[in-house]
Simulated assay, not measured.
Amino acid sequence: MSFWRVLLCIICPPLSVIGKGCGSILIVFILWCLGWIPGVIAALIILNNPER
């Protein structure tokens, strides 16, 4: 995970997971709307997952 992805994850989490699929974007967007911190945490978890 690059520095720019982490920075984008902090600024706008849905944009940071755009390459991981529609489901990931939707989950992160919903969590981001519920609160900034849950969206950032979800995006970091999705980006650190090596299986996707």
Rank of each mutant, 00 (worst) to 15 (best):
A42P: 00
E51F: 11
A42S: 08
G21T: 02
L7A: 12
S24K: 15
K20D: 02
G19S: 03
I41K: 02
L15P: 05
L34M: 13
P50S: 07
S24I: 13
L34G: 09
G21H: 06
I30E: 01
I10L: 15
G23I: 04
L31R: 00
I27V: 08
G35H: 04
P50V: 05
L26W: 11
I11H: 09
C33Y: 07
M1I: 08
I37G: 03
I45Y: 09
P14R: 07
C33T: 09
W4S: 14
I18L: 14
N49K: 07
L44I: 07
V28E: 05
N49D: 11
W36N: 07
I27A: 10
F3L: 15
G39M: 00
V40I: 12
W36V: 09
A42F: 00
L26E: 12
L31Q: 02
G35K: 03
I45L: 10
G21E: 05
K20L: 12
L26S: 14
C33E: 07
P38A: 01
L8E: 13
W32Y: 09
P13D: 06
G39L: 00
G39T: 01
V17F: 02
L15W: 08
V6H: 14
A43K: 01
S2K: 11
I45W: 06
V40L: 12
V17W: 01
I37Y: 10
G39F: 00
I41L: 08
L7E: 10
I11R: 11
N49A: 05
R5V: 08
L47D: 01
A43G: 07
C9L: 11
C33V: 09
C9G: 15
I37M: 10
P50M: 04
S16L: 06
F29I: 05
P38E: 03
I25V: 15
N48M: 12
A43L: 02
A43T: 03
A42Y: 01
E51W: 10
C12F: 15
I25M: 15
P13C: 07
I46F: 11
L15K: 06
G21I: 04
G35M: 06
I18K: 12
V6Y: 14
W4A: 15
R5I: 10
I25A: 13
P13M: 03
S16G: 11
W32A: 01
S16H: 10
G35F: 05
N49T: 06
I10E: 12
